[in-house]
Simulated scan of single mutants.
Amino acid sequence: MAETKTKPTGLSPATFIDAVEDPVRREDAKAVCAMMERISGEQAAMWGPSIIGFGSYHYRYESGHEGDMARISFSPRKAELVLYITGGFPRHAELMARLGKHRTGKSCLYIKRLSDVDRDILEELIRESLAWMDATYPR
Rank of each mutant, 00 (worst) to 15 (best):
R127K: 15
L130C: 12
I17D: 04
R77S: 07
E37Q: 15
I121L: 11
A29C: 05
S73Y: 14
P90M: 09
M69G: 10
P13I: 07
E124N: 13
Y59F: 15
A31I: 13
P90T: 03
M1L: 12
D28F: 01
A131H: 13
P90K: 12
M35F: 07
R139A: 12
F16H: 15
E128T: 11
R71E: 13
L122M: 13
R26M: 05
L81W: 06
A135M: 12
I39K: 03
I111K: 12
R38Y: 00
G64V: 14
T104I: 14
L11G: 01
Y57Q: 09
L114S: 04
L95V: 01
C33R: 13
D68G: 07
E94C: 00
R26D: 04
L109E: 11
T4P: 10
H102G: 08
A70V: 14
A45E: 15
P8Q: 11
D116Y: 09
W47D: 02
I17Q: 03
A135K: 14
A131S: 13
G64H: 06
G67N: 10
T15C: 02
M1C: 08
K5S: 10
M69Q: 10
A14I: 04
P90I: 06
P49T: 12
A2L: 12
S115H: 10
G10M: 11
E94R: 12
D22V: 03
V117E: 01
G55F: 03
V117Q: 07
M35W: 01
S40A: 13
H92P: 04
I121C: 09
Y137K: 08
Y84K: 11
M1E: 05
G48Q: 12
A31S: 09
D18E: 15
R71V: 14
A70S: 15
R119E: 13
Y57W: 05
E42H: 08
A135L: 12
G105D: 02
K78Q: 13
P8I: 10
L122R: 07
L130N: 07
W132G: 04
G55K: 01
M46T: 00
E3I: 13
Y57K: 01
D116F: 09
K5P: 06
A135P: 00
S50Q: 09
Y61V: 10
R26N: 06
A135R: 15
I111Y: 09
G88S: 11
A135H: 10
P8D: 02
P23F: 08
S129M: 09
Y137R: 06
G100A: 08
M96H: 08
R38F: 03
M46I: 00
E66Q: 11
P23R: 03
L11V: 07
P13T: 02
M36I: 05
L95A: 12
M69P: 00
T15A: 15
R103W: 00
M36S: 07
T136M: 10
A19Y: 05
G64T: 06
C33M: 06
E27S: 06
G55L: 00
T136V: 04
W132H: 15
A2S: 14
I72Q: 08
M96P: 05
R25K: 14
E80Q: 11
E37R: 11
G88D: 06
G100D: 08
V117T: 05
E3M: 12
V20I: 14
D116G: 05
T4Y: 05
E37C: 02
I111W: 10
S40D: 02
E94V: 14
R38K: 13
P23W: 04
